[in-house]
Write a protein that binds this DNA or RNA. Structure first.
Lengths: 340, 340
DNA sequence: TATTAACACGAAACCGTTTTCGTTCAATAC
DNA sequence: GTATTGAACGAAAACGGTTTCGTGTTAATA
């Protein structure tokens, strides 16, 4: 086991000072050509690599980004991580991922762990419990300490920071409108409780499309399910047993594919008897049978933008308190669960 | 913006030395009750939290685990991350995730970035390009430096370290055997090139089941696809056009669901005309239509075990060079793509 | 010959901790 | 009254770098 070599080791071997070695490796003008070559050759030979921790301590910069998300098994979040990774790595940053598992406490603990020097900034999406409680003190604390934060997807207006979201309301509006235009009138909405910022916006978009077309909404056609844990299959079953619907808009992939299978088992044909539109352009949608028409959220893009915003803030010297909210346009990906 | 408070700040305010503050906060016997109370109260008031970076530098321990995986959009890997996170967080460790995107170069770069002090150990699954090249020098280097490594799923025998895998051969054997027992004889295998350790093992299991039942294998029923990029839909199409099969074993979810839709479009009934078994018990399988019988890999469990093995090594003082390979048993999850 | 400037390098502070090893002072023992 | 002990605290080194500010040497200039 050959231990890592340090500046001190090189200095000792070459009988120069640590400062000289440090400067020589940085190709400083101060150091003679001879010495530089000697030091650099030696460093290369012994595969010297500076210790990141020491550098972090000195510059008060870790080149690490903390990402706190509610879950990782949701396709949308994994695509966002991918986007973050992509941009961050290209700019020399590492990504530390922490899962809140939709729990307020875990979110707080994870942030505290990371906030004490481990990272230069946060990219996060709020846990549903946090949004339900409406308690954002942990976020306030880090921003007050001067740690930049970028919120994405599940955001809050109570915190002043950069944000990236898609226009969820428009996405739902667009989808609902399409269903209406195709002559559907009994359009169900399967969503989650309103405290989730995205679900609320999507519900609004759904309502807006109806209002604009002067169609009355049948409130019993709106089903609100819990975000926690597994899908409440029984409630979905009941819902379809007791409601007549000719189209369904769902706020995530799982709700959609599960519902689709249910109505197929009842003997209905998709999309002839009933149309489906989901949110998130993931694999479930792509490989569903029939393949699913969805509102694409462009998670990877979102991740890249979030990373860019964060790194910009981290690397900008000035302390301007100007925050922006980027709103991405969702797009409708037409597949076979709607009439073409 | 209130900046983070340090030991020095506390020391100055309270007119004691830094050492005293440090000891007081650790409840050292050396410090008088009075002073301890004073210091602790002050620290609490100003929400003092020690700087992780400084501590890392001092103890040469970061409490960070580096995870390098080929991709994150595969359900299996996300479940493993989840397991790692779970165990790691419970033991005070953070998880730094890096994606190699199946690229050898990215794998090397990521490891080098992390190996210079950022992490205490690695948990990783090899990129397909790495397995293809058979070049493991980057792994050798970190192990020689004394950094513990745990390999999972896609492993190599050329590196001495702890490993966690499922018994892929047995998994494939079990699945194939089941199909044979149900009277299927024209069983196709859709897999990837043999350089992927897992694919190789699965192919062996497939062969073993045939040998044991004294059935000749029709080599044209084995389809090898690339791991890179997207699914080669054309080759799958051709394959089914030119081969007569009554059952299919696929080494991942995507291959399976795509093939299923294809044969359904050709008018075949699953599972009556043709059975399907896939690998990985993910959402695609669960929500496919019909729901998919799979060989479950227990990714979360795998992640937990990997994290446990790594942390054990990291925290064990002694330098015993003993490595173990944990082999998890896969289980067959029976759903509706096979005859019950 | 004395002054000066450029050059090449080293000493030391610093980042924020931990920890070892004094040191001071008062109380006790002899 | 002196030596010993222990309690309570501080100084300083260490972790591994970066960076500022000397400093000694040499060569060019006055």
């Amino acid at each position: 086991m050959k231990a890592k070599i340090t500046l001190k080791d090189i200095a000792r071997e070459l009988e120069v000072s640590i400062s000289t070695v440090s400067k020589a490796l940085k190709n400083s003008e101060e150091i003679s050509r001879d010495t530089k070559e000697k030091v650099q050759a030696f460093a290369k030979l012994y595969n010297y690599k500076p210790n990141n921790i020491a550098i972090s301590l000195k510059n008060k910069r870790t080149k690490n980004i903390g990402v706190v998300i509610p879950a990782i098994v949701h396709h949308f979040f994994t695509t966002v991580i991918r986007g973050i990774e992509k941009y961050a790595n290209a700019h020399g940053y590492n990504v530390i991922v922490c899962l809140s598992e939709e729990s307020f406490d875990k979110e707080v603990i994870n942030m505290e762990m990371l906030a004490n020097g481990s990272i230069d900034g946060f990219i996060m999406s709020l846990s549903s419990e946090t949004q339900q409680k409406g308690d954002y003190n942990h976020l306030k604390e880090v921003t007050e300490q001067g740690i930049p934060v970028v919120l994405f997807d599940r955001i809050t207006n109570e915190i002043d920071c950069d944000k990236v979201v898609i226009d969820d309301q428009f996405g739902a509006y667009m989808a609902t409108k399409k269903l209406i235009d195709q002559g559907r009138r009994k359009i169900a909405l399967i969503t989650t409780d309103d405290y989730l910022s995205v679900s609320k916006a999507r519900t609004e978009g759904y309502r807006k499309a109806f209002e604009e077309s002067d169609i009355e909404i049948n409130e019993s056609r709106i089903l609100k399910l819990s975000t926690m844990g597994i899908v409440d299959e029984e409630r979905i079953q009941e819902f379809f047993d007791s409601n007549e619907v000719d189209a369904v808009l769902c706020v995530n992939e799982i709700f959609t594919v599960y519902s689709m299978r249910l109505v197929q088992e009842k003997g209905l044909n998709i999309p002839n008897d009933i149309s489906f539109i989901g949110f998130t352009d993931g694999k479930l949608s792509k490989y569903a049978n029939p393949s699913l028409t969805v509102v694409a959220q462009h998670g990877e893009k979102m991740g890249e933008i979030a990373a860019q915003m964060l790194i910009d803030k981290v690397e900008s010297e000035k302390e301007e308190e100007s925050f922006q909210t980027k709103i991405l346009e969702p797009t409708l990906v037409i597949r076979n669960s709607t009439i073409n």
